Computed example of a mutant assay.
Amino acid sequence: MASTFDVSPETYASMSHWFKRQLFETPPEVSPRDVDLTGKTAIVTGANQGIGLEIARQLLDLGLKKLVIGVRDEAKGRAAAIELLQGRRLPPGAIEVWGLDMLSYDSVVSFAHRVSQLDQLEIVVLNAGIFRLERTINKSTGHEEDVQTNYLSLVLLLILLLPVLKAKNMARSPGKITIVSSDAAGMSKFQEQDADPLLPALDDKAANWEGQERYGTSKLLGQLFLAEIAKRIPPSVAVINGACPGLCRSSGLARDAQSSMIRYPLGIYFWLFGRVPSVGARVVVNAAVKQGTVSHGQVIDGGRLRPMAQLVYTTKGEEVAKRLWRETMDELSFAKVESIVEELSDKAGKPAK
């Protein structure tokens, strides 16, 4: 681990190191001299505002041929597409807006099916996320909405897109899936980690609730999943990595606060310590287009590999990750996700010993 990262997971998750990154580290920009995306197709979810919009803009700046924006509110998505088109000479249909509601399994499955009809696909950025200030249970699934959006639906979409990326790319030049993660994952207490089963404990209406803690936990679940999926899916199928863009202003993530008094102190906090979205987006774009197979199952920050939450690297974390994997496969069994993973795994097609 020490040879992989320039900082330990413990130090990376500390507030002092976070302040250092936020205030004194500037992620490198990916320029057309570094990467040429001419002729390529990308999908960015949650791209109607904030970091997602800037990720889309930066991918287009690198010469992208076609961009698909996956958004819950298609009207806002169309407005974002108009903004992205300004000053560009792109052919008709270069930017498409598709409906994607991460609170609905049916919407995720439909979106993935539509993606399979694309002529090509090289890059997927799973950016759509949510941060609830109050506990909110998703009526369609019964799960708490941070966990539903930031973890369960994200996993479903990612796995459903793996066969698409494999079919539309070659093993020597695999497609990429980048998950937008968060520094909050390493700061989460994850008080439910000993629960068995785990997912129902995250939906417990009687348990204590704190919005920042739950958001961090939902992102930590994503990191535990990233470590597990990388053990099963080789990078020749698709390079799967994460990116931590840091705290960013005008991200729209804490939109729940706009109707409460907390919006004032929160606004000051974002102004003092937040990056502008275009700077945070650099981290994600770097992970999505510049990092190679060495980033498979890893998280990127500042243009280099950085540690995930400390729990990920512990024996306890491995046990929690296995339990989470099993419960997640059961939860998403309606979409046959486990069969998809098995068919694409390193073991697929190998003769039994």
Rank of each mutant, 00 (worst) to 15 (best):
P92F: 13
P234F: 13
R172M: 05
A79H: 08
R88V: 02
P307W: 13
G46R: 00
D194L: 07
M102N: 00
L253Y: 06
F190K: 07
G302I: 04
R282N: 04
G46D: 01
G222N: 10
V279I: 12
V35F: 01
G99A: 09
P234I: 08
D34L: 05
V320H: 05
K168F: 00
V276E: 09
G317T: 09
L60H: 01
D36I: 01
A288Q: 08
A128Y: 02
S188C: 09
L220E: 03
A94W: 09
D301Q: 14
R263S: 14
G246P: 11
A287N: 04
P163W: 06
V239Q: 03
V284T: 15
N208R: 12
V125G: 07
N208E: 15
C248W: 05
N169I: 00
D330R: 15
M308Y: 02
L266C: 09
A201P: 00
G87S: 06
A281Q: 02
A309S: 13
Y269F: 15
G246R: 14
G246T: 14
C248R: 04
G99R: 11
V35D: 01
Y12E: 09
G246N: 11
L37T: 00
L332Y: 01
G50I: 02
P234S: 15
S345A: 03
A288I: 01
L84F: 10
R282C: 03
L162G: 01
V337F: 10
K336I: 10
T11Y: 08
I340T: 12
L60T: 01
R78A: 15
L103G: 04
D183A: 09
F225N: 03
L199D: 00
T149M: 00
N127P: 11
T136H: 10
G267W: 06
G77I: 07
G292M: 08
I55F: 01
S8R: 05
I95D: 06
Y269D: 05
L158N: 09
L100Y: 06
I268G: 06
S110T: 05
D346E: 13
